[in-house]
Amino acid sequence: MAKLSYLYPAVVFLFLYLLIASHEIARAEAGICQRRSKTWSGFCGNSGNCDRQCRNWEGATHGACHAQFPGFACFCYFRC
């Protein structure tokens, strides 16, 4: 039983580290919001074109093509 006593602080440290890390990740993700482009129509096959349109026409930070039933759509990313 005495051999396992060194394991307790390591487990507590690991738990606290994961708790803090998950909080930081959630905060970073909360700063970016995504929505389907309002100016793009049709199939989105080139993320470069989607990115350009999102930045130039919608004032987004960037854009990309993502799968959405029944095909691919252009999604723009904004700061929340």
Rank of each mutant, 00 (worst) to 15 (best):
T61V: 13
R52E: 04
Q53C: 07
V11D: 02
A21F: 15
L4D: 00
Q68M: 13
N46D: 14
G71H: 08
R36T: 11
W57Q: 13
H66A: 07
S5P: 01
W57S: 11
T61K: 13
C80F: 03
A30R: 09
R27Q: 04
G59T: 00
S47H: 10
F72D: 11
S41M: 09
L14M: 12
R52L: 09
T39A: 08
A60R: 04
F72T: 04
V12T: 06
Q68K: 03
N56A: 10
I32C: 00
A64N: 05
Q53F: 07
Y8L: 14
S22D: 13
F15Y: 04
V11H: 07
F78K: 10
F43Q: 07
L7V: 14
R52C: 11
R27H: 05
Y6S: 11
Q68W: 04
G71E: 08
A26C: 05
R79E: 15
H62K: 14
S37P: 02
F15M: 12
G71M: 08
W40N: 03
A10Y: 08
A64E: 14
A73G: 11
F69S: 12
C44A: 06
W40E: 03
G63S: 07
A73S: 13
C76F: 00
I32A: 02
I20V: 15
S37E: 06
A10E: 06
V12I: 15
N49P: 03
G63Q: 00
R35L: 09
L19W: 13
Y6L: 13
A60N: 00
I32F: 10
A67M: 11
F78L: 03
Y8N: 01
G45E: 06
G63K: 04
N46E: 08
H62F: 14
Y8C: 10
F13E: 06
G45C: 03
I32S: 00
V12H: 02
F72V: 02
T61R: 05
D51F: 00
H62D: 05
N49C: 13
A10K: 10
A26W: 07
H66Y: 07
A64C: 11
C74K: 00
C65A: 09
V11P: 04
C65L: 05
R36S: 12
H62A: 04
F69Q: 06
L14Y: 13
V12D: 04
N49Y: 15
I20L: 12
S41G: 08
C65H: 03
G63F: 09
A28L: 13
E58R: 03
T61S: 04
L18S: 10
A67R: 12
Q68G: 12
Q68E: 14
L14Q: 01
V12A: 08
L16A: 12
G71S: 15
S47K: 04
D51E: 05
L7K: 05
G42P: 10
E29H: 11
C65T: 01
R79A: 10
M1R: 05
C50L: 01
S47T: 15
C65M: 09
N46Q: 02
W40K: 00
A10V: 06
N46R: 09
L16Y: 15
A73N: 11
A2G: 12
S5I: 14
N46I: 10
F69A: 14
L7M: 14
C44Y: 04
R36K: 14
R27K: 15
C74G: 02
I20D: 05
H23C: 06
L18M: 06
Q53E: 09
M1G: 13
C65D: 08
Y17W: 13
F78Q: 06
Q53H: 10
G71Q: 03
Y77W: 03
A67T: 07
S41N: 10
Y6W: 14
A30L: 00
